[in-house]
Amino acid sequence: MYRLTAIILTAAIAAMLTVLVYAGPVVKIDGSSTVYPVTEAVSEEFQKIERWIKVTAGISGTGGGFKKFCNGETDISDASRPIKEVEVKTCREHGVEYIELPIAYDGLAIMVNPKNNWVDYLTVHELKKMWEPASQGKVTRWSQIRHGWPDTEMHLFGPGVDSGTFDYFTDAVVGKSGASRGDYTASEDDNVLVQGIATDAFALGYFGTAYYENNKDVLRLVPVDDGNDADGKGPFLPTHENVVNGTYQPLARPIFIYVSKKSAGAPEVKKFVEFYLKEASKLSTEVGYIPLPQKAYELARKRFEKRTTGSVFGGRGAQVGVKIEDILRREE
Protein backbone atom coordinates (compact mmCIF):
# COMPACT_ATOMS: atom_id res chain seq x y z
CA MET A 1 0.00 0.00 0.00
CA TYR A 2 2.70 2.45 1.03
CA ARG A 3 4.94 1.29 -1.77
CA LEU A 4 2.15 1.90 -4.28
CA THR A 5 1.61 5.44 -2.99
CA ALA A 6 5.32 6.07 -3.22
CA ILE A 7 5.46 4.82 -6.80
CA ILE A 8 2.50 6.98 -7.84
CA LEU A 9 4.02 10.04 -6.17
CA THR A 10 7.39 9.50 -7.82
CA ALA A 11 5.72 9.03 -11.19
CA ALA A 12 3.72 12.20 -10.72
CA ILE A 13 6.80 14.23 -9.82
CA ALA A 14 8.75 12.73 -12.71
CA ALA A 15 5.91 13.56 -15.10
CA MET A 16 5.77 17.10 -13.78
CA LEU A 17 9.45 17.54 -14.50
CA THR A 18 9.51 15.91 -17.92
CA VAL A 19 6.29 17.24 -19.40
CA LEU A 20 7.13 20.23 -21.51
CA VAL A 21 5.20 23.30 -20.43
CA TYR A 22 3.82 24.34 -23.78
CA ALA A 23 0.15 25.16 -24.20
CA GLY A 24 0.00 25.95 -27.94
CA PRO A 25 -0.57 29.39 -29.44
CA VAL A 26 -2.35 31.72 -27.02
CA VAL A 27 -3.43 35.33 -27.48
CA LYS A 28 -3.43 36.95 -24.04
CA ILE A 29 -5.66 39.97 -23.49
CA ASP A 30 -6.45 41.94 -20.34
CA GLY A 31 -7.64 45.39 -19.34
CA SER A 32 -10.77 47.55 -19.28
CA SER A 33 -14.10 46.01 -18.39
CA THR A 34 -15.73 48.59 -20.69
CA VAL A 35 -13.88 47.21 -23.71
CA TYR A 36 -14.30 43.61 -22.55
CA PRO A 37 -17.69 42.93 -24.21
CA VAL A 38 -16.24 43.86 -27.64
CA THR A 39 -13.14 41.72 -27.06
CA GLU A 40 -15.32 38.85 -25.87
CA ALA A 41 -17.49 39.06 -28.99
CA VAL A 42 -14.46 39.20 -31.31
CA SER A 43 -12.77 36.28 -29.52
CA GLU A 44 -15.94 34.23 -29.71
CA GLU A 45 -16.19 34.70 -33.48
CA PHE A 46 -12.44 34.29 -33.96
CA GLN A 47 -12.37 30.93 -32.23
CA LYS A 48 -15.10 29.64 -34.52
CA ILE A 49 -12.64 30.06 -37.40
CA GLU A 50 -9.28 29.47 -35.70
CA ARG A 51 -9.97 26.53 -33.45
CA TRP A 52 -6.34 25.91 -32.51
CA ILE A 53 -5.57 29.40 -31.31
CA LYS A 54 -6.55 29.98 -27.71
CA VAL A 55 -7.72 33.47 -26.76
CA THR A 56 -7.95 34.58 -23.13
CA ALA A 57 -9.36 37.87 -21.85
CA GLY A 58 -9.38 39.37 -18.37
CA ILE A 59 -10.97 42.43 -16.75
CA SER A 60 -8.41 44.01 -14.44
CA GLY A 61 -9.33 47.54 -15.54
CA THR A 62 -7.54 49.88 -17.95
CA GLY A 63 -4.79 50.71 -15.44
CA GLY A 64 -4.42 47.13 -14.19
CA GLY A 65 -4.29 45.92 -17.79
CA PHE A 66 -1.48 48.32 -18.70
CA LYS A 67 0.53 47.17 -15.65
CA LYS A 68 0.52 43.61 -16.99
CA PHE A 69 0.94 44.73 -20.60
CA CYS A 70 3.99 46.89 -19.89
CA ASN A 71 5.46 44.01 -17.92
CA GLY A 72 5.26 41.87 -21.04
CA GLU A 73 2.66 39.53 -19.55
CA THR A 74 -0.07 40.13 -22.13
CA ASP A 75 -0.19 40.54 -25.92
CA ILE A 76 -3.08 42.98 -26.10
CA SER A 77 -4.42 45.50 -23.58
CA ASP A 78 -8.03 46.73 -23.60
CA ALA A 79 -8.23 50.43 -22.70
CA SER A 80 -11.13 52.84 -22.24
CA ARG A 81 -8.71 55.81 -22.37
CA PRO A 82 -5.36 56.46 -24.05
CA ILE A 83 -2.20 55.32 -22.28
CA LYS A 84 -0.91 57.68 -19.53
CA GLU A 85 2.58 59.08 -19.12
CA VAL A 86 3.51 56.81 -16.19
CA GLU A 87 2.39 53.80 -18.18
CA VAL A 88 4.34 54.97 -21.22
CA LYS A 89 7.40 55.13 -18.99
CA THR A 90 6.90 51.65 -17.51
CA CYS A 91 6.45 50.21 -21.00
CA ARG A 92 9.65 51.89 -22.17
CA GLU A 93 11.59 50.60 -19.16
CA HIS A 94 10.54 47.04 -19.95
CA GLY A 95 11.14 47.49 -23.67
CA VAL A 96 7.50 46.97 -24.60
CA GLU A 97 6.54 48.83 -27.76
CA TYR A 98 2.85 49.13 -28.55
CA ILE A 99 0.53 49.83 -31.45
CA GLU A 100 -2.50 51.89 -30.44
CA LEU A 101 -5.73 50.99 -32.26
CA PRO A 102 -9.11 52.68 -31.69
CA ILE A 103 -11.98 50.22 -32.05
CA ALA A 104 -15.24 52.01 -31.18
CA TYR A 105 -16.91 54.95 -29.48
CA ASP A 106 -18.55 54.82 -26.09
CA GLY A 107 -21.01 57.60 -25.29
CA LEU A 108 -21.55 58.66 -21.69
CA ALA A 109 -25.25 59.14 -21.05
CA ILE A 110 -26.73 61.60 -18.54
CA MET A 111 -29.77 59.94 -17.04
CA VAL A 112 -32.76 60.99 -14.91
CA ASN A 113 -35.87 59.30 -13.61
CA PRO A 114 -38.83 59.27 -16.07
CA LYS A 115 -40.90 61.14 -13.43
CA ASN A 116 -38.48 64.06 -13.69
CA ASN A 117 -40.38 66.53 -15.90
CA TRP A 118 -38.24 69.63 -15.38
CA VAL A 119 -34.88 68.77 -16.90
CA ASP A 120 -35.21 69.38 -20.66
CA TYR A 121 -31.46 69.54 -21.32
CA LEU A 122 -28.24 70.32 -19.42
CA THR A 123 -25.29 72.44 -20.37
CA VAL A 124 -21.74 71.32 -19.55
CA HIS A 125 -21.58 74.36 -17.29
CA GLU A 126 -24.59 73.12 -15.29
CA LEU A 127 -23.12 69.62 -15.14
CA LYS A 128 -19.92 71.10 -13.77
CA LYS A 129 -21.88 72.92 -11.08
CA MET A 130 -23.44 69.59 -10.11
CA TRP A 131 -20.27 67.53 -10.01
CA GLU A 132 -17.29 69.77 -9.18
CA PRO A 133 -15.53 69.24 -5.83
CA ALA A 134 -16.49 72.75 -4.62
CA SER A 135 -20.18 71.78 -4.76
CA GLN A 136 -19.76 69.13 -2.11
CA GLY A 137 -22.35 69.72 0.61
CA LYS A 138 -23.37 73.06 -0.94
CA VAL A 139 -25.14 72.38 -4.22
CA THR A 140 -27.77 69.88 -3.11
CA ARG A 141 -31.05 71.11 -4.59
CA TRP A 142 -32.35 71.19 -8.17
CA SER A 143 -33.24 74.88 -7.84
CA GLN A 144 -29.54 75.69 -7.39
CA ILE A 145 -28.74 74.36 -10.86
CA ARG A 146 -31.23 76.43 -12.86
CA HIS A 147 -33.84 79.04 -11.97
CA GLY A 148 -37.33 77.67 -12.06
CA TRP A 149 -36.39 74.09 -11.28
CA PRO A 150 -38.10 72.66 -8.18
CA ASP A 151 -36.67 73.34 -4.75
CA THR A 152 -36.23 69.64 -3.97
CA GLU A 153 -33.23 67.54 -3.10
CA MET A 154 -30.98 66.36 -5.90
CA HIS A 155 -29.59 62.81 -5.66
CA LEU A 156 -26.47 62.05 -7.70
CA PHE A 157 -25.32 58.63 -8.95
CA GLY A 158 -22.04 57.86 -10.70
CA PRO A 159 -19.25 55.32 -11.13
CA GLY A 160 -16.56 54.87 -8.47
CA VAL A 161 -13.07 56.31 -8.66
CA ASP A 162 -11.45 53.14 -10.09
CA SER A 163 -13.41 53.42 -13.28
CA GLY A 164 -12.12 54.82 -16.56
CA THR A 165 -15.59 56.33 -17.05
CA PHE A 166 -15.09 58.41 -13.89
CA ASP A 167 -11.69 59.64 -15.15
CA TYR A 168 -13.16 60.62 -18.47
CA PHE A 169 -16.31 62.31 -17.14
CA THR A 170 -14.47 64.41 -14.55
CA ASP A 171 -11.95 65.47 -17.17
CA ALA A 172 -14.66 66.35 -19.70
CA VAL A 173 -17.01 68.13 -17.33
CA VAL A 174 -14.99 69.47 -14.39
CA GLY A 175 -11.81 70.01 -16.38
CA LYS A 176 -9.49 67.88 -14.29
CA SER A 177 -9.32 64.10 -14.36
CA GLY A 178 -10.41 62.68 -11.01
CA ALA A 179 -11.81 65.97 -9.64
CA SER A 180 -15.30 65.19 -8.38
CA ARG A 181 -17.47 65.82 -5.38
CA GLY A 182 -17.51 62.84 -3.07
CA ASP A 183 -21.06 63.02 -1.71
CA TYR A 184 -22.81 61.00 -4.39
CA THR A 185 -23.84 57.35 -4.59
CA ALA A 186 -20.89 55.62 -6.24
CA SER A 187 -20.79 52.08 -7.58
CA GLU A 188 -18.45 50.19 -9.88
CA ASP A 189 -21.47 48.19 -10.96
CA ASP A 190 -23.47 50.27 -13.42
CA ASN A 191 -26.58 48.18 -12.83
CA VAL A 192 -26.67 49.51 -9.26
CA LEU A 193 -26.71 53.04 -10.70
CA VAL A 194 -29.54 52.10 -13.07
CA GLN A 195 -31.57 50.77 -10.13
CA GLY A 196 -30.84 53.89 -8.06
CA ILE A 197 -32.02 56.32 -10.73
CA ALA A 198 -35.00 54.18 -11.73
CA THR A 199 -36.40 54.25 -8.19
CA ASP A 200 -35.71 57.89 -7.28
CA ALA A 201 -37.61 60.78 -8.91
CA PHE A 202 -34.96 63.30 -7.83
CA ALA A 203 -31.97 61.37 -9.16
CA LEU A 204 -29.43 62.11 -11.85
CA GLY A 205 -26.49 59.96 -12.90
CA TYR A 206 -24.03 59.16 -15.68
CA PHE A 207 -22.74 55.91 -17.24
CA GLY A 208 -22.15 54.25 -20.61
CA THR A 209 -24.96 54.40 -23.18
CA ALA A 210 -25.12 50.60 -23.40
CA TYR A 211 -26.77 50.58 -19.98
CA TYR A 212 -29.39 53.08 -21.18
CA GLU A 213 -30.15 51.00 -24.26
CA ASN A 214 -31.04 48.06 -22.05
CA ASN A 215 -33.10 50.05 -19.53
CA LYS A 216 -35.00 52.49 -21.75
CA ASP A 217 -38.27 51.86 -19.94
CA VAL A 218 -37.05 52.99 -16.50
CA LEU A 219 -34.68 55.86 -17.41
CA ARG A 220 -34.87 59.12 -19.32
CA LEU A 221 -31.93 60.37 -21.37
CA VAL A 222 -30.94 64.05 -21.04
CA PRO A 223 -29.56 65.99 -24.04
CA VAL A 224 -26.29 67.82 -23.41
CA ASP A 225 -25.14 71.19 -24.75
CA ASP A 226 -21.42 71.95 -24.66
CA GLY A 227 -22.02 75.64 -25.34
CA ASN A 228 -19.71 75.48 -28.35
CA ASP A 229 -21.69 76.18 -31.50
CA ALA A 230 -18.74 75.34 -33.74
CA ASP A 231 -19.39 71.61 -33.28
CA GLY A 232 -23.12 71.89 -33.72
CA LYS A 233 -25.65 74.16 -32.04
CA GLY A 234 -27.91 73.15 -29.23
CA PRO A 235 -28.27 70.20 -26.90
CA PHE A 236 -27.66 66.77 -28.39
CA LEU A 237 -28.61 63.24 -27.41
CA PRO A 238 -25.93 60.52 -27.55
CA THR A 239 -27.37 58.94 -30.65
CA HIS A 240 -25.22 56.93 -33.01
CA GLU A 241 -25.23 59.80 -35.50
CA ASN A 242 -24.38 62.56 -33.01
CA VAL A 243 -21.50 60.58 -31.56
CA VAL A 244 -19.97 59.77 -34.95
CA ASN A 245 -20.28 63.28 -36.43
CA GLY A 246 -18.83 64.81 -33.28
CA THR A 247 -21.81 66.88 -32.13
CA TYR A 248 -22.34 64.90 -28.90
CA GLN A 249 -19.39 66.48 -27.20
CA PRO A 250 -17.66 66.29 -24.83
CA LEU A 251 -19.21 63.05 -23.56
CA ALA A 252 -18.24 60.66 -26.36
CA ARG A 253 -14.91 58.88 -26.12
CA PRO A 254 -13.02 56.40 -28.24
CA ILE A 255 -12.05 53.03 -26.75
CA PHE A 256 -8.86 51.20 -27.72
CA ILE A 257 -6.82 48.07 -27.89
CA TYR A 258 -3.05 48.27 -27.49
CA VAL A 259 -1.04 45.56 -29.25
CA SER A 260 2.51 44.73 -28.21
CA LYS A 261 4.78 45.11 -31.24
CA LYS A 262 6.76 42.04 -30.27
CA SER A 263 3.59 39.95 -29.97
CA ALA A 264 2.33 41.30 -33.30
CA GLY A 265 5.19 39.33 -34.87
CA ALA A 266 3.52 36.09 -33.78
CA PRO A 267 1.13 34.79 -36.46
CA GLU A 268 -1.71 34.09 -34.00
CA VAL A 269 -1.69 37.65 -32.62
CA LYS A 270 -1.43 39.16 -36.11
CA LYS A 271 -4.39 37.09 -37.31
CA PHE A 272 -6.41 38.03 -34.26
CA VAL A 273 -5.80 41.78 -34.53
CA GLU A 274 -6.59 41.80 -38.25
CA PHE A 275 -9.81 39.93 -37.51
CA TYR A 276 -10.58 42.37 -34.66
CA LEU A 277 -10.31 45.43 -36.92
CA LYS A 278 -12.38 43.73 -39.61
CA GLU A 279 -15.22 42.79 -37.25
CA ALA A 280 -15.06 45.66 -34.73
CA SER A 281 -17.69 47.75 -36.50
CA LYS A 282 -20.34 45.00 -36.56
CA LEU A 283 -19.58 43.46 -33.16
CA SER A 284 -19.24 46.72 -31.22
CA THR A 285 -22.72 47.70 -32.40
CA GLU A 286 -24.02 44.32 -31.29
CA VAL A 287 -22.77 44.76 -27.70
CA GLY A 288 -24.05 48.33 -27.36
CA TYR A 289 -21.23 50.60 -28.54
CA ILE A 290 -20.99 52.98 -31.46
CA PRO A 291 -18.69 51.98 -34.32
CA LEU A 292 -16.07 54.36 -35.73
CA PRO A 293 -16.49 55.63 -39.29
CA GLN A 294 -15.17 53.13 -41.88
CA LYS A 295 -12.34 55.54 -42.71
CA ALA A 296 -11.05 55.29 -39.12
CA TYR A 297 -10.93 51.48 -39.29
CA GLU A 298 -8.98 51.72 -42.54
CA LEU A 299 -6.51 54.10 -40.94
CA ALA A 300 -6.20 51.77 -37.93
CA ARG A 301 -5.57 48.82 -40.26
CA LYS A 302 -2.80 50.75 -42.00
CA ARG A 303 -1.34 51.69 -38.66
CA PHE A 304 -1.19 48.05 -37.67
CA GLU A 305 0.22 47.00 -41.04
CA LYS A 306 3.04 49.54 -40.75
CA ARG A 307 3.50 48.61 -37.08
CA THR A 308 3.37 52.30 -36.12
CA THR A 309 4.16 52.37 -32.42
CA GLY A 310 3.45 54.97 -29.76
CA SER A 311 0.31 56.84 -28.76
CA VAL A 312 -1.17 59.65 -30.84
CA PHE A 313 -2.26 61.19 -27.54
CA GLY A 314 1.28 61.73 -26.34
CA GLY A 315 0.82 60.00 -23.00
CA ARG A 316 -1.63 62.57 -21.75
CA GLY A 317 -4.26 60.01 -20.78
CA ALA A 318 -7.93 60.81 -21.24
CA GLN A 319 -8.59 63.51 -23.83
CA VAL A 320 -11.82 65.27 -24.36
CA GLY A 321 -13.58 65.92 -27.62
CA VAL A 322 -11.36 64.02 -30.00
CA LYS A 323 -12.48 62.88 -33.43
CA ILE A 324 -10.48 59.77 -33.94
CA GLU A 325 -10.01 59.99 -37.71
CA ASP A 326 -8.54 63.49 -37.38
CA ILE A 327 -5.89 62.23 -35.01
CA LEU A 328 -5.07 59.16 -37.04
CA ARG A 329 -4.80 61.30 -40.15
CA ARG A 330 -2.36 63.60 -38.41
CA GLU A 331 0.04 60.70 -38.28
CA GLU A 332 -0.36 59.59 -41.87
Binding site: A23, I29, D30, Y36, T39, E40, S43, E44, Q47, K54, V55, T56, A57, G58, I59, S60, K68, E73
Partner: peptide, 15 residues
Amino acid sequence: LITIGALTYVAFLPA
Protein backbone atom coordinates in the same frame (compact mmCIF):
# COMPACT_ATOMS: atom_id res chain seq x y z
CA LEU B 1 -7.79 35.38 -8.30
CA ILE B 2 -8.49 38.54 -10.30
CA THR B 3 -5.34 40.03 -8.81
CA ILE B 4 -3.13 37.17 -9.92
CA GLY B 5 -4.76 37.38 -13.35
CA ALA B 6 -7.52 34.81 -13.54
CA LEU B 7 -9.42 35.60 -16.69
CA THR B 8 -12.99 36.13 -17.66
CA TYR B 9 -13.03 34.93 -21.24
CA VAL B 10 -11.55 31.46 -21.51
CA ALA B 11 -12.94 29.25 -24.25
CA PHE B 12 -10.90 26.15 -23.53
CA LEU B 13 -10.34 23.80 -20.60
CA PRO B 14 -7.13 23.05 -18.73
CA ALA B 15 -5.56 19.96 -20.31
